[in-house]
Amino acid sequence: MEGIIYKIVFYLFAVLTVGSALVVVTSRNIVHSAFALLFTFFGVAGLYVFLSADFLAATQVLIYVGGILVLILFGVMLTRKVFDVKIFSGAGQVFPAAVGVAVIFFLLATVIVKTPWHLVGERAMEPTTAEIGKLLMTDFLLPFEVASVVLLAALVGAVILIRKEVRPPKVD
């Protein structure tokens, strides 16, 4: 059922995702990191398409690439001394961190391989947007509303955090 092209495209996206993620965490230049992150997000969006999650793929591009990444770039630019900062933390923990992460990856891989996944088949490739919309307005209405409140709170919180403090004139 799956043609060779399908596989090639899949692996292309997989390599794009993983490779650019590698650049994100190892690049010496933070701007390079940020642009590599862009490709990671695109790669993940592509994988969503393979998973028949069209709405999510679009959301990924819109919010991650259009929103979060732009935000991060702003963060990079607004903090001037960005380029002076050494890449790796001076805590002297690159090596232990690498070992720890490697062990975690090994454990995850073991779990993935060894677990007898209860596969029941695959969802058909069909548009999901309408169904997601319906669920958001029915079963997931409460989380949906709560999420909007969280967003509002984050917005207000962010504004308060970076606002320059205006001291009221002292009254004797």
């Binding site: 995702t17 993620a21 994100v24 965490v25 790796f88 992460v101």
Partner: peptide, 25 residues
């Protein structure tokens, strides 16, 4: 793989913005 790379970034990067990128991963 993405998770491990992100974790590595969070643990080792010095720049706060880079740590944020790790979290996104």
């Amino acid at each position: 793989i993405l998770f491990s790379l992100g974790l590595f970034g969070v643990l080792t990067r010095r720049n706060a913005v880079s740590i944020l990128m790790g979290i996104e991963l």
